[in-house]
Amino acid sequence: MGRLAELAGDEDTGDRCRTFVFQDEGHTLGNALRSIVSRYPEVLFCGYTVPHPAETKMHFRIQVSNGRAIDVLRKGLEDLEKVCDHTSKTFEAAWESYKSEHVA
């Protein structure tokens, strides 16, 4: 626990813009998540950075036109989770069909 932190936003934008700090994460999660979140219609900006190579931290920034940035982050994570589930299922099916073809 405590692997996710939130940097302070500013008054003008309120909840709409946030930078989240992911502890012990890097490009693996950052880029995969960004590739999904940046494709939401309400997202104006989405980017990630690993500010320093010696620190295992990843900064993930989301700016949305309406709604809250944190809700968009949650949606992104949920979508990535669904993507993983589907990839697993598809791979298992592909593996099974390969096995059945090549055992005989």
Partner: peptide, 17 residues
């Protein structure tokens, strides 16, 4: 694939907390 999924799950829980 499972590990990437676990990462997502962990951080969804983090958001909840």
């Amino acid at each position: 694939v499972k590990i990437l999924k676990t990462k997502c799950k962990t951080f969804i829980e983090e958001i909840d907390s």
